[in-house]
């Protein structure tokens, strides 16, 4: 994926020079290891700052919401699916966009790497198949497949579903992936065990809402947790309110979530709140044969009625 950066800069430069877009949204080099910053270029000179590597896990569709300009946007598989969802939900127009597709090989999980290293990581060097983390007195190489973000290890849509440009040949999609092992284990639990699991999962939550805000789906002008009249949820650290936030947010993402992993990646305390959205993702697949963001033509299950929709919940 390292060669992508050059190509991204070339395409971005061309788009800006020809005036076909006013800005290109991508990533620039981060200031700490394993982090890059979403960034825009508005002039051909500024495209030099754009980079690409295995630390571009933030979903850039989040930066399109209600923008008015013509935009070039760098999009890996999941970003492209959220761009599709944004278009379907009228948060951006297809005509405004030039999608610079990135056939993705997955993003690495900086926490996984940090936990496997004996000390603070001060530099990470990437090669085609992995990364080497260095710090005071250690240097450790990891195969990429061993340190992928959990969602990336389960991803079967690495190639952008819509694109106007492509920075490289499509990559082979992962085959034979068991995408829902974690959800099945959750489903198999009894209510008490599941409740305990959720309690423990959410105990460290500080309600910063990074998970919500990193999510391209969470674009409501006023989120239900911020509503004051009426106030749906308490604002303190009562576990009941914390749970209400997580459960409701997950439902708001039903049929829309692409499992891009931006939420989990952004959480300062490392909570895997993706289990909730993944459960709903699985339900959508099981009940409606639906996967979010794959097509601009088909309406999502939650805003369409089809006679064959399951209805056995009506007693």
């Amino acid at each position: 994926m390292l060669s992508y950066a050059e190509k991204i800069r070339e395409i971005a430069g061309r788009l800006l020079t020809s005036g076909s877009v006013e800005m290109v949204i991508g990533f620039r080099q981060g200031t700490v290891p394993m982090m890059n910053e979403p960034h825009f270029a508005k002039t051909p000179a500024q495209v030099q700052a754009l980079v690409w590597d295995s630390h571009c896990g933030i979903n850039l569709a989040n930066y399109l919401t209600d923008r008015k300009e013509k935009i070039g946007i760098v999009a890996k598989g999941c970003d492209s699916r959220n761009i599709v969802t944004h278009i379907i939900e009228n948060k951006i127009k297809r005509e405004q966009l030039v999608v610079i597709g990135v056939p993705c090989k997955g993003m690495v999980d900086k926490r996984k790497i940090a936990m496997k290293c004996p000390g603070e990581i001060t530099a990470v060097i990437e090669d085609e198949a992995g990364v080497t983390a260095k710090g005071g007195g250690f240097s450790q190489r990891f195969e990429k497949k061993d340190v992928l973000q959990h969602n990336c290890s389960l991803c079967i849509h690495r190639n952008p579903v819509i694109h106007d440009e492509l920075v490289a040949e499509p990559v082979p999609e992962q085959q034979g992936v068991d995408r829902y092992a974690d959800v099945r284990s959750l489903e198999a639990m009894g209510p008490e065990q599941r409740w305990k699991y959720v309690e423990e999962l959410l105990a460290p939550c500080v309600r910063c809402y990074a998970c919500r805000n990193a999510c391209p789906l969470c674009y409501c002008p006023t989120c239900f947790v911020d509503e004051a009249r009426p106030q749906w949820v308490g604002k303190g650290q009562d576990p009941q309110d914390v749970r209400a936030f997580h459960f409701l947010r997950a439902y708001h993402c039903a049929g829309r979530c692409t499992d891009c992993g931006s939420c989990e990646r952004s959480c300062p305390v490392g909570i895997n709140m993706r289990v909730f959205t993944k459960k709903l993702e699985k339900d959508c697949l099981d009940l409606f044969g639906w996967e979010a963001g794959l097509s601009l033509e088909v309406r999502p299950p939650l805003d369409t009625y089809r006679p064959q929709d399951p209805n056995d919940f009506i007693k």
Partner: peptide
């Protein structure tokens, strides 16, 4: 541009002091 207004910086910062008052 990149900021998602998540407040992680504030909540993790030892010097940020802002608060809000709520009746429950």
């Amino acid at each position: 541009f990149a900021c998602i207004n998540c407040g992680t910086c504030t909540y993790s910062c030892p010097t940020c002091w802002c608060f809000d008052i709520q009746d429950e």
